[in-house]
Write a protein that binds this DNA or RNA. Structure first.
Ligand SMILES: [Mg+2]
Ligand SMILES: [Mg+2]
Length: 1131
DNA sequence: ATGTTAGGGTGTGGGT
DNA sequence: ACCCACACCCTAA
């Protein structure tokens, strides 16, 4: 049957009011989405979009059916003809032989009545066995005829060795051939009117020749979209346990301009439809209640079927270009399909723009339910665009819309039936459902989902509805397909699903696969709390820069199977395609950012530019990842491995260079270096940064190190785990401070907010100007308070919630009892409705449930806890397994507290904490206090002139007495202070020893493990000094660097520094001056090493006469970095 | 069908 | 009791 009649009559004859640049009348439209049905309508492309309609003076929906998109295959001629047994003969192959073979042997098999062919020259770079440049026979034939068999493509015939292009889809052929990159204005020169339209659009035209489609030059801005936001409520029918749709709310914006700031008002139309749950009746007064309800237009339906029919009709009438919702793809679309089929609704394709017969298959229906309309699922988009603990609507409202807690009415899905008991509650439910729809729309606007997807699609050249589905691989694939085919390259074949499976997957039984190559280098952190300024330097987009710097491309490096091949391309080679594409992205971005600097820029335009520069950056950054993606069409493990290899090399070289400049590198991850400057002057630190930047950037053309930030305080705990106070300057050059937390428990969703807050309070106390003793005291006090609050039940339940993602379907876990989130999900799923599936985030609270089971088996959903009498919060778990480990880890480098004390404050059983605690027997452990700042340093050792006993010095005090007053040998009566001159001499000799070691190390690599390697790996030279670049497996050889030397000297200075001791001890005057004397001995060496000039010769001239070239560093220009940007996922 | 590797942390279970 | 491998999760880059 025909769909319900439309209000707006279809216009069958397109009005060609537009002329193209040649003066031909054209049908001009903006395409937003495309569709093809390879099996039912091969060779046809459906383009959906908007065209200007003079009659209504606005844009109306249209569909252009491009027909006769032909298959395009390439036959690679053999050098010599094969005989019957597929053995090469002496007969050379000419192109005409290939033509004849195809014409005689293959055309009949493909039932070709006709085909076109020509000789073309093409390039290829994805298989070393295929010539990089060769003549091919290009054959084009109708899509209605079948594809060439896979084995013929692989093995070829007698005159050709293989066939390329047989697997490309028509949409791909069309987009690449017409060079269409994402939504844009298109002209159709010979549009044909349609009498039996296949679409529901206002305009439909056909175009029988793909070549008649062309891109409009100097296009106007994109037309506005009709956006339909939908939200729904469901109930589980208590009799059959089926999920029913009982309410839907709709918001319509009929002119959403994607090139402008989010519209206000948010929408123009709003309405709602509902029905009763199958197992309930309407309240008696529902009719009256609805009559007085004015908030929105409400339609009451007698059945779910009627509701769904109403929905179908409304969608057809509204004819939206984009359907907006939350959890559409993971749940709502599936549910809709299920109910549409269950209720036996007809003409379901009205939800889409293409008329199709109803199919009873749910999976098929789901796939194309809204075809022709963009589907914007804000849950999915948020996952790509923002980091959040979870992505349910409530959490997104808090994080994106900054709604306060309780501002949005939170409702559990099993509460819905209750709302149908009274009319008042039904009206309430309508309000919530409408309200949520508005939030959904607002979030979409706020995150600029559509404008960003448009920009990405225009950059990559894919299809926008696919961009909105997420996934970086396909975007990258299309970008490279365009890039390679534009330059006459034959592109790699698209693998079918079958091909993917058989390869041996190095999986660890579960879904996580083992790494295929090594990635970024993470430097060993010098753990500790830093209260001097720390400088963070970071390479801008390191991996994209490496690809450019070293010209890493399919065209410059042949793919080999050997793992260890890390050779770089020839310097003389022309820029490859990958580097060129990245350069284009980077240059576009630079240009866009320049445009953004215009102070008179209109806000709308500024937003547009900002979105575009983001999209450009995202695209450039995801290119590397796709190289290493096994299922990528452009998979190139060797290229990915080379990129990371150079990354590791650059990071180690940078570290060495910085240390050579006598700065202390305390950490670095993949593309960054943290430097302890030992300074408190912000401007000085900046100058240091500028100098390092200049030195490092001299070495490269494209790779660029930049100042990323300056930390006032840094608490460096582990690799990838630290907290810092970042200093920045505001517009008035006033210093501003804010904390940054990386990798710590408090930034993870799988720790409770309670533990996170405790951790944050702890950090606030550590990263603070207050006296040292106060910090510890405040932390302890807060912990005690926390315990008290917990005991008195003052802690809101929301703080106790732990969230964890299901990485697979909950039923697929091998040992589900081990995992709290899996158990909660499985239990929850039994009640029906929205069930937890792979990717969902589960919230739970650990409870005391009367059992003796381990905590992992006492996890309950927050609702279970609320509704249960016998469930109680497991306070001991939250104190012992949440707060305690989180706070302890943060306090680890701190003196004055430990596991035991923290446990004590929390009222925990402390017996478990006594043993592992560091020895508390020594009253003044000098090294403990400083060990974190000075790792890999030796104590100062001197020999007693009397008893020849070795004395080790790690600080002013040895135990309770100054080391100068007592020999290490208790029998010896001579005090070191009595032979201070000798001690001082021994100190000087010791320092000399370290300097000698430093020089020796520059000439030879002393690591025995490295000797073998040095014979194979050539020595690399940095400046004039040979350094061993790496040992086996890329691990850097620990040589004795300037940094090590400097560190050792600083340590000596430190251990003789009385002011470094917490409480200034009362000392005998001679002892004090003796210690001072030793400190000065060290400082005489050190004083030459200001941070401004470094000259090794001068530095050590007083001690060590040696002719050495100085390292001359450039003078410092006194300027600040004008641009420093916060980047995400930037390597 | 959905970009990579490096690395920390919890918890379990088996072996010594 | 201790060590270790393993599965799982989430983060940094
Ligand atoms: Mg970076
Ligand atoms: Mg970085």
């Amino acid at each position: 049957t025909d769909p319900a009649p439309l209000r707006c009559a279809r216009i069958t004859r397109p009005m060609l009011t537009v002329k193209d640049s040649a003066g031909n009348p054209v049908f001009r439209f903006f395409w937003w989405d495309a569709y093809e049905n390879v099996t039912k309508r091969p060779g046809e492309i459906f383009l959906f979009g908007k065209t200007y309609c003079d009659a209504v003076k606005s844009y109306v929906s249209c569909c252009v059916v491009v027909q006769n998109v032909e298959r395009k295959i390439y036959l690679l001629p053999r050098t010599h003809v094969l005989d019957l047994h597929r053995r090469p003969t002496d007969t050379p192959v000419s192109m005409i032989d290939v033509y004849h073979e195809f014409n005689n042997n293959y055309a009949p098999r493909l039932c070709l009545k006709s085909f076109k062919s020509r000789k073309v020259t093409k390039y290829y770079c994805f298989d070393p066995n295929i010539p990089t440049e060769s003549e091919y026979l290009e054959i084009r034939y109708s899509g209605k005829n079948p594809r060439v068999d896979a084995d013929i493509c692989k093995d070829g015939g007698k005159t050709f060795s293989c066939v390329f292009g047989s697997r490309s889809s028509f949409l791909e052929i069309f987009l690449l051939e017409r060079r269409i990159k994402g939504p844009c204005w298109l002209d159709i020169v010979n549009p044909e009117p349609v009498h039996n339209p296949v679409s529901y659009c206002k305009f439909e035209i056909h175009c029988s020749k793909p070549i008649d489609v062309s891109i409009v030059q100097d296009p106007p801005p994109p037309p506005s979209l009709v956006a339909l936001t939908i939200n729904m409520q469901t109930v589980v029918n208590s009799t059959n346990m089926q999920n029913e749709i009982v309410m839907m709310s709709f918001l319509v914006h009929s002119k959403y301009a994607v090139d402008k700031k989010p519209p206000n008002p948010l929408f123009q139309q709003h309405f709602c439809v509902f029905t009763r749950p199958g197992d309930q009746n309407f309240p008696y007064d529902i009719h009256n209640a609805l009559q007085t309800f004015k908030a929105t237009k409400v339609q009451k339906m007698d059945s779910e079927r009627a509701l769904l029919n109403y929905f179908l009709l409304q969608v057809q009438k509204i004819d939206p270009d984009v359907v907006v919702g939350h959890d559409l793809l993971d749940y709502q679309i599936g549910l809709l399909c299920e109910r549409l089929l269950h209720c036996k609704t007809s003409n379901i394709s009205r939800l889409s723009k293409v008329k199709r017969a109803d199919v009873p298959n749910k999976r098929l229906l789901e796939k194309d339910l809204f075809v022709g309309r963009l589907v914007c699922d804000i849950k999915l988009s948020s996952k790509e665009l923002i980091k959040s603990r979870s992505y349910d609507l409530g959490t997104l409202c808090q994080n994106v819309l900054k709604l306060g807690q309780g501002e949005r009415i939170e409702m559990e899905s099993d509460e819905v039936p209750r709302f149908f008991q009274t009319s008042t509650d039904i009206l309430k439910l309508i309000t919530f459902t409408m309200q949520d729809a508005a939030y959904i729309l607002k979030i979409m606007y706020e995150l600029n989902v559509i404008p960003l997807a448009l920009q990405i699609t225009n950059i990559a050249g894919n299809v926008m509805s696919r961009t909105l589905l997420g996934g970086r691989s396909e975007r990258n694939e299309l970008l490279l397909l365009h890039a390679f085919s534009e330059r006459d390259y034959i592109v790699p074949e698209k693998n079918t699903f079958k091909d993917l499976d058989d390869g041996e997957t190095k999986r660890n039984a579960s879904s996580k696969k083992k790494p295929a190559y090594s990635g970024g280098l993470v430097l060993d952190p010098k753990v500790g709390f830093y209260d001097k300024l720390v400088l963070l330097m970071d390479f801008n987009s390191l991996y994209p820069s490496i690809i450019q710097e070293y010209n890493i491309c399919f065209t410059t490096i042949s793919s080999t199977d050997s793992e260890e091949d890390i050779s770089l391309p020839d310097q003389q080679l022309p820029p490859g395609i990958l580097p060129t594409e990245i350069r284009k992205l980077v240059e576009s971005r630079r240009y866009v950012k320049k445009l953004m600097n215009n102070p008179d820029l209109a806000p709308d335009l500024k937003m547009q530019y900002n979105i575009r520069q983001m999209a450009l950056k995202l695209t450039a950054n995801s290119m590397y990842g796709c190289l290493g993606f096994v299922h990528s069409r452009f998979y190139a493990k060797n290229l990915a491995a080379l990129v990371t290899f150079k990354g590791r090399e650059i990071l180690t070289n940078t570290k060495d260079l910085v240390e050579k400049m006598l700065y202390q590198v305390i950490y670095g991850d993949t593309d960054s270096i943290m430097i302890n400057t030992n300074t408190l002057e912000y401007d000085d630190v900046f100058k240091i940064g500028v100098r390092i930047k200049q030195e490092v950037n001299k070495l490269y053309k494209q790779i660029e190190l930049d100042i990323d930030g300056v930390f006032k305080y840094l608490l460096l705990l582990k690799k990838k785990k630290y907290a810092a106070v970042v200093i920045s300057k505001d517009r008035n050059h006033q210093l501003q401070y804010h904390q940054e937390h990386k990798g710590l428990d408090i930034v993870r969703r799988d720790w409770s907010q309670l533990a996170a807050t405790a951790g944050k309070v702890t950090l606030d106390n550590i990263l603070n100007d207050q006296p040292y003793e106060d910090r510890i005291e405040n932390i302890h006090a807060h912990l005690a308070k926390l315990k008290e609050d917990l005991d008195q039940n003052k802690v809101p339940l929301s703080l106790l919630v732990i969230t964890k993602q299901l990485t697979k379907d909950p039923r697929l876990y091998n040992n589900h009892t081990q995992f709290p989130h899996v158990q909660v999900a499985l239990r929850y799923n039994k009640r029906g409705g929205r069930v937890f599936k792979a990717g969902d985030i589960v919230s739970y609270i650990i409870c005391e449930d009367g059992t003796n089971l381990p905590a992992t088996q006492r996890a309950y959903h927050i609702e279970e806890l609320k509704n249960s009498e016998h469930l109680k919060i497991d306070i001991k778990y939250y104190l012992g397994q949440q707060i305690h480990p989180v706070v302890s880890r943060l306090c680890e480098p701190l003196e004055g507290t430990d596991l035991y004390q923290i446990a004590n404050c929390l009222g925990l059983d402390t017996t478990n904490f006594k043993k592992p605690v560091r020895s508390t027997t020594e009253p003044t452990d000098n090294l403990a206090k400083t060990r974190n700042l000075f790792t890999n340093v030796d104590p100062f050792v001197f020999i007693c002139t009397s008893c020849k006993t070795e004395n080790k010095v790690t600080g002013v005090f040895d135990g309770n007495v100054p080391f100068l007053t007592k020999c290490a040998n208790p029998e010896c009566g001579i005090r070191p202070i009595d032979y201070l001159g000798s001690v001082s001499n021994q100190l000087t000799l010791s320092i000399r020893g370290y300097i000698k070691q430093y020089y020796r190390n520059q000439l030879t690599c002393e690591d025995p493990a490295c000797v073998n390697e040095t014979t194979r790996v050539p020595l690399k030279f940095v400046g004039k000094y040979p350094i061993c670049t790496f040992c086996k497996k890329g691990i850097m050889y620990q040589k004795y660097t300037e940094g090590d030397l400097y560190n050792q000297l600083r340590y000596f200075q430190h251990i003789f520094d009385l002011s470094k001791l917490g409480k200034r001890p009362i000392l005998d005057g001679t002892i004090e001056s003796g210690i001072h004397n030793l400190k000065e001995t060290v400082e005489r060496v050190l004083q030459h090493s200001g941070y401004a000039t470094i000259n090794l010769t001068k530095l050590f001239s007083s001690l060590f006469v040696q002719n050495r070239d100085s390292i001359i560093l450039p003078s410092v220009e006194n300027h600040t970095i004008d641009e420093y940007e916060e980047d995400f996922d930037d390597f």
